[in-house]
Amino acid sequence: MLFPLDTLILFVTASALLALAPGPDNIFVLTQSMSKGSKPGIFVTMGLCTGLIVHTTAVALGVAAIFQTSQLAFDILKYIGAAYLLYLAYLSFKSGASHHFNANHSKMSYFKLYRRGIFMNITNPKVSIFFLAFLPQFTDIKNGSMTLQIFVLGFIFIICTFIVFSSISLVAGKLGHWFNRNKNAEGIMNKIAGGIFTLLALKLAFTNR
């Protein structure tokens, strides 16, 4: 067995609690699910989890250390992420109530939501640095390849995140469906989402390593 059972239990518990803790990703899932529905929220979740694969690989291969040691690399990535969040805020404010909650979403629109989740996640350098600090705490040289251990822990973290975020999406989708019975509700939710994206963009832009 690659990891002792008590280590796995501790890691899974910590991962689930971290996924539940308010942050840019689960807030993003919450707002998208409330405004668009549970299924679009799950596609966003899939995108975010795909982004976590990138961060896991970065830690396993040592690339994440670059963002920890290079202020320039850190700043470039975070400003790209902040600009993208501002773009999402613009789209939310612009959309108003033009897209109905029960509107049919094409496969392309689901793909766009999936892609949006990926881009939002990978342009947050804090995730790579977090993984760089968090994952190695549960590794042990006695258990074999450190690279393999990082990949396995990252995979477990992704599963925990997917379960938690999907649950958030399902609950938020139902709340959004109830909220949208008011004809002005979607416009209000889009404005709220736009405000949240703006705040997240500012938070990311002014964050430090």
Rank of each mutant, 00 (worst) to 15 (best):
T31Q: 14
Y79G: 01
G96M: 12
I150T: 09
A16D: 00
G195R: 00
A205K: 00
I76C: 09
Q68Y: 12
L200R: 06
N184M: 15
N102I: 07
A60H: 03
G154W: 04
V59K: 00
S169R: 01
F11D: 03
H100D: 15
S106P: 05
Q68L: 15
F165H: 13
A65Q: 11
G144A: 01
M34I: 14
A103G: 14
L18C: 00
T50D: 01
T57M: 10
K78C: 03
H99G: 11
P24N: 05
L170R: 08
L204P: 04
A89W: 06
F131H: 07
I129R: 04
F3R: 08
P40N: 07
A89G: 03
L200K: 05
F165P: 01
V59T: 09
F93T: 03
L199M: 06
L153H: 04
D140K: 03
S166G: 02
V44L: 15
K142F: 10
G47M: 00
S15G: 06
I196N: 07
K174C: 06
S38V: 10
V164W: 06
A73N: 05
P22E: 00
T161K: 05
M108L: 13
K112V: 13
G154L: 03
G23C: 07
N184F: 15
L170S: 07
F131K: 05
Y110P: 10
S166A: 15
R181I: 14
